[in-house]
Design a protein around this nucleic acid. Structure first.
Lengths: 192, 192
DNA sequence: GTTGAACCGGAGGTGTGCCTCCGCTACAGT
DNA sequence: ACTGTAGCGGAGGCACACCTCCGGTTCAAC
């Protein structure tokens, strides 16, 4: 009874235009947006995004009529990548699989600030993305819990928010971020 | 050899105007700014802040010539409150004292988003505030470490960033936030 | 009560972002 | 090669934020 982990990619793919130049612009916009959202959060300037993509502002609006459309597309892309990553961890040790995936969650999230803001968003697409992500990563936590290496009194949402919060914080350097994340995960681990 | 924990309050107090109406406006601005920064982060609209304080925009600029001046004042206020709280915890059990103070850190920080953005700021006042805060809270961690109830391989900066990150995240409700924070702090605790 | 200095508010100039609209461009199908 | 159409870019109107400036007001000292 596993929900298919990839209901989202199709939504995004559908919107991609057919013509060659149009498709190129579409991709450039997505890349620019990912960058801008990572830098300035969900309210990054749309005109700045168009500039980064070397594309007219009109083109941006044709592809993504609202800021939300653009944001959702970027978000969906990231989620898809994470879902794919989860599948490849099926044969690892439970605890290692979980933390490896969470590292990916922390790293892949170029849209860090934005992702945090979206974690409680209630729109259809975000709900779909969350479900997709839970379907992919949730089993990793469950497996660790059944193996007795992760505490049972927390759910996957708790874990994601913990990691998202810590990764989105400003640290002195990456080493400090990793250290703090490891400490917090120690709180999740049991039977040491 | 304890640094005095209150070098900051004077800086702020000095700027407060003498005249009665002026002082009232000053206070209203600080309160409005605290609220707005909490809601929209460090780039909240200054005109909105003036509106919330029921004060002309000119008055805002007279009291706080730059956005940074205003932000620093709010920040300093919060830090002062935290320093005072630390003193009152001297007679509690080491672990309880630490977590109680961290709860205060998490709660008092109405300027949550802002505080996270400021944790790595390098201006004079922010450095002073950080030192002040470290001077107040740092001993609580050290005491817990010496008592063997907190892990020794982390410093106070690590701890603050961990708590700040988690607190600044969007949760479903306060219960979830508390739960996640407690789990992360379990990672800090030793000898259970 | 008088008075002058401190303080007030908001009009208004400048910049920037949002979004629409439309004349021009270049692709794809024949 | 031709051509119709999907797609392009950016000018421009609107809204809002930043910040300055100054005529009018209010406090407090005498």
């Amino acid at each position: 009874m596993t929900a298919t982990p990839f209901p989202v990619s199709e939504i995004v793919a559908t919107r991609r235009p057919h013509r060659k130049d149009a498709a190129r612009n579409y991709d450039a916009l997505l890349a620019a947006a990912r960058e801008a959202f990572a830098e300035h959060g969900a309210e990054a300037s749309l005109e700045d995004i168009a500039r980064r993509a070397a594309v007219g502002i009109g083109t941006l609006y044709r592809n993504f009529p609202t800021r939300r459309d653009l944001f959702e597309s970027v978000y969906a892309d990231e989620v898809n990548a994470l879902c794919r990553a989860a599948v490849e961890l099926a044969d690892r040790e439970p605890w290692e699989a979980l933390t490896t995936w969470l590292d990916g969650f922390a790293g892949y999230m170029v849209t860090k600030r934005a992702i945090r803001e979206a974690l409680n968003d209630e729109s259809d697409i975000f709900i779909a993305c969350r479900e997709s992500m839970y379907a992919a990563g949730g089993p990793l936590l469950e497996r660790a819990q059944k193996a007795g290496v992760a505490r049972a009194d927390m759910d996957f949402g708790d874990l994601l928010r913990m990691v998202a919060g810590i990764t989105a914080t400003a640290f002195e350097d990456d080493a400090q971020r990793d250290r703090v994340l490891a400490i917090a995960l120690d709180g999740v681990r049991t039977g040491r």
